[in-house]
């Protein structure tokens, strides 16, 4: 049985897309077939991290939602373009199938204006898993709570909720945790991102776990190298031995457990 993993945060800019791209790559490196869907239709971006040329993106999730094609027709095998440290193509073992969201203003506007049939998402995820024979499907979501994110939480086997050590994130996360419980998510993992390296990580982990009564998969430090990389590539492939990569690996391990 394939596992569906939703990656979510209450607020934007938290690190969802980078976390998703890194987990996808680390899991694929273990020899699995991994799909990743950008459901952040209003502000898409994960394709950038995977180095996907927008010119070559002739089909996107939007095309499926408008009934122009089957969902698997919008999947791109991005593994051949993923480069490791020295610039060589990364060895994936498995494969990464990215379903991007359109970056065309007209397409984004249409979604905002007309909405779309949310039930297509659920069917689409199942079709992707079956037709691409996936072991894992990651869903990169739009921040905050709306019909689409509630649905992706409800159908996920693992719900990864990412937050920063910030009061606004703390409050919103409390609401989201409550909602996820009401949706009977089988496994919920919290990830704290952009923690100042000078923080006491052990104490922070304890504090967050007792606040939300949910396990923290990892505390990720605010990393200068990550800032400098600026979403130009997948961090864990570019810096395989970096301490941040080590922590991404810990999360990947818990996702695959």
């Amino acid at each position: 049985m394939a596992k569906i993993i939703s990656v979510h945060s209450f607020r934007g800019g938290t690190g969802k897309s980078n976390l998703t791209a890194n987990l996808t790559s680390l899991v694929a490196q273990q020899g699995y077939r991994v799909g990743v869907v950008d459901t952040d239709i209003q502000s898409p971006g994960i394709h950038v991290i995977f180095g996907m040329d927008e010119e070559k993106m002739d089909k996107a999730l939007n095309d499926y939602l408008w009934g122009r094609c089957a969902i698997e027709d919008t999947a791109y095998d991005v593994s051949p373009v993923l480069k490791v440290d020295g610039g060589e193509v990364a060895v994936m073992g498995g494969g990464i199938y990215l379903i991007p969201s359109s970056i065309k203003v007209g397409e984004i506007a249409r979604i905002l204006r007309e909405g779309y049939d949310v039930s297509l998402l659920n069917d689409g995820f199942q079709d992707l898993i079956n037709r691409l024979n996936l072991d894992y499907l990651f869903i990169d979501t739009h921040p905050g709570l709306n019909e689409e994110t509630l649905l992706s939480i409800a159908i996920s086997d693992i719900f990864l909720l990412i937050l920063r050590p910030d009061q606004q994130d703390f409050q919103g996360t409390a609401v989201t945790v409550e909602v996820a419980r009401k949706l009977d998510v089988p496994k919920m993992l919290l990830v704290v991102n952009k923690a100042l390296p000078s923080f006491d990580f052990t104490a922070l982990k304890k504090q967050v776990e007792s606040t939300y009564q949910a396990p923290v998969a990892a505390i990720l430090p605010l990393s200068e190298d990550m800032v400098r990389l600026a979403s130009k590539s997948v961090f864990s492939l570019t810096y395989p031995d970096h301490p941040l990569t080590q922590r991404y690996r810990e999360i990947a391990k818990q996702v695959m457990a």
């Binding site: 209003q42 905002l112 204006r113 909405g115 049939d117 949310v118 659920n122 019909e147």
Partner: peptide, 11 residues
């Protein structure tokens, strides 16, 4: 699941 209806641009 209910199809989402079109709505005025919220944002």
């Amino acid at each position: 699941i209910a199809p989402r209806r079109g709505r005025p641009i919220p944002l």
